[in-house]
Design a protein around this nucleic acid. Sequence first.
DNA 1: TTTATTTACGAATACGTTTTAGTAAAACGC
DNA 2: GCGTTTTACTAAAACGTATTCGTAAATAAA
Lengths: 336, 336
Amino acid sequence: MRQNVTVKTLAKELNISIGTVSKALNDSYEISIDTKQKVLELAKKLKYERNPAASNLRSQKTKTIAVIIPQIANNFFSLAINGIEEIARKRGYHVLIYLTHENSETETAFTESLLSGRVDGILISVSSSTENLEHFRELVKKIPLVFFDRSIEDIDAIKITADDYESTYDATVHLINNGCKKIAYLYALNCLNTGKRRIAGYRDALKDHQLESGENLIVNHNSDEDLNYENIKNLIVNQKPDGVISSIEELALPCYYVCNELGLKIPNDLKIISFSNLSTAPLLNPSLSTITQPAFEIGREAAGFLFKILDKKPFDMDEIPKLKSTLIKRDSTGPL
Amino acid sequence: MRQNVTVKTLAKELNISIGTVSKALNDSYEISIDTKQKVLELAKKLKYERNPAASNLRSQKTKTIAVIIPQIANNFFSLAINGIEEIARKRGYHVLIYLTHENSETETAFTESLLSGRVDGILISVSSSTENLEHFRELVKKIPLVFFDRSIEDIDAIKITADDYESTYDATVHLINNGCKKIAYLYALNCLNTGKRRIAGYRDALKDHQLESGENLIVNHNSDEDLNYENIKNLIVNQKPDGVISSIEELALPCYYVCNELGLKIPNDLKIISFSNLSTAPLLNPSLSTITQPAFEIGREAAGFLFKILDKKPFDMDEIPKLKSTLIKRDSTGPL
DNA sequence: TTTATTTACGAATACGTTTTAGTAAAACGC
DNA sequence: GCGTTTTACTAAAACGTATTCGTAAATAAA
C-alpha cells in the first residue's frame, strides 16, 4: 500500500519544489504566506498525511512516547494512562504501551529495544521484581525517561510519586486512633523505593505510638495469588491482628475473603485499609477505607516533565511535585 | 542523538557490503551461514538495533498496530488490551493506544491520522456516540481493521463480539425465574450493534414470558453521570420495577447508590444484574450478579484475526467466533 | 544609481534501511 | 571439457521527508 499523496504529489501539482512544500507544511519562515496557503489548501483537499516513517527518519524525532507499566488491569495504572494520554494528545504525541507483567527481563527487553529510536522518551513504572539497577542507570543516560509511582533508588532521573511515607504513616495512625493495638502489614514492592517508603511510614507510626511490631506481623506479597491468600490467612489466624494495612490493592481483597471464610467481622474483628484506586471501594461489604493516590495527576505530571525534558526546557529539581494521596475513611476501619 | 551503530558500521567492520549485512540480519537465503553468523555476532556485540523509521519507510511495514478504545479506566477494556498485548508481543508488534473518550470526532481524527502509514492495522471498539458510519465504511477499505466488542451495523469487516443477545436474554430470564415481574433496562450503546443486540435479548425475553415492557421501563445512558443517577432514581421511584438489567457496568453502580438513598434492599426490593468485568463484583454489598464478557479472549481473538489479515492468510467468515459471556448469579439477584 | 540586505524559493543531500538487478566464482551435469 | 545452474555477494536505487546551501529577484540603504 504505497502512499498515494506525498510532498511530491503536492509539489508537482503546484509546480513548486519538494523542499518548498515541505517547508510550507512545517510553517517555515522561508516560505511566503501565499505559497503556504496554497500548499495547505491542496494538502487538505488531497488529504495529504505526512509519512511518519520518513519524517522520523529524517528528523530523528518520532512524536511518540512509550509507557512501560507492570499491568493494565488495575485502576491505578489505567488512570495514570488517562493522564498521560491527555498530555500526550495535547502535544500531538502518540503513546505506545508495554506491559511487563511484573517481569524484570521483559522490562529490560522493552527498554533495550526502545533505544533504537522508536520513541522520543519513556515513562515507566517499574516492575516489582526489578533488580536490574545497573541497567536503569545506563538507560537514563541514553534516553529521556521519567519514573512514575514505582521508581528505583539512587538513580538520577525524575520521579513522580505520591507521598508514600506520609500517607502510610497517616493510615497507620488512623487505625491506631480507631483502637487497633496490633497492626499487620501486607508488604509489596519491597525492591522499590515506593514499597520501602510505605513500610517505613507504617513502622515509624508504630514506633511513635509504642505499638508492637515485628516481622511476623508482615506478609510479603507473592506473585502466586493462592499463596497470598494462604499467607494472609495464616497471619490472621496465628497473629490475630486487629488491623491490617495493605500496601497494594491486590492484597486487600484476599483479606475480605479470608475474613468471610473465618467468619470474622470487618471492622469489628479486623480493620482494613489499603492503597487503592478501586471505584467500587465505597460499595464493598463493608466499604473499604483507602489510601487513594492521585493516579490521573501522577500520569499528567510524569508526562508533563517528560515533555519538559524533550523540549529541553530547564527546570529545577524542586519543581517536581510530590503529589498528595487521600486518606478516605470508610466502614472497614470504622468504629466498632 | 544520531544512531551510533547502523548497518553501515557493521558492514565497514566486517568488510562486506551494506546490503549483505541487511540481508544477513533478515535471515535471507542469499547469505551464507558463515556470513550470517559473523553479522549476528557483531550486531549483538555492538548492540545494534535496527532503526525502525528507516525500516518502516523502506518496507512500508511498521510492526505496529493501533488500539482505539473509548476509555481505559474500565475493566473490560483493560482486560481486552491485555489480550491484545499478549498476541502482539508474541509477534513482535508494538501497540499504540488511542482513547476517544466516547467522542466521535476524536475517533475520526485518530483513524484519519492513522492512514499515513503509522500502523499496519487497527483494532477498534467504537465510541458510543459514533454516527460516522460512512467514515468507517471508507476506512475499512483503506487499512486492515478489526472491530471488537463495540461494532457498527452493515459494515464489511471482522467483528469480534460476545453473545450479546443471548446473554441478555438469559439474564432477563434469570430475573424472571427469581420472581421479577417488572424489569427495567438501562440502555447504553444504542447507536451500536452491541447495544441493539443486548436490548433485543431483553425485549424478546419479556415477550416470551408475557411480561410488561415499554419505553418507560427503559433509561437511556447519558454522558453526564449526575443525570444518569437522576434518571435511574426517577425510574425506580416512578415505575417501581422489581428488577433491573444494566447493559453496562457504569450504570449498575448508580443503582446501588440510588437504593442506598431510597432505603431499598437489594435483592428483596430490587434485583440487579449488569454487564460487568468488575473484579470486586463478589465483594459488593450485596455481591453483584453479572454478565461477564470474556474480555481477555475478545482482545486475543481480535488481535489474532487482525494478524491473519496482515499475514494475508485466507480464512472463512464462519471461523470468526462469537465468544460466550458468563452469567454469574450472586446475591443481587438472589432469592428473597 | 550602486551596493547591501532580505525574501522566497530550488537543488541536492542525508536519514538507515530494504530490495532489485547484476555478476564473479563455485558447483554441477553430461 | 564446456555450458549451465547455483551460491554469495555488491552496487545502486528507492522509501518520503527535512534541511543545508546557494541564488535570483525584490527591497532597502547609501
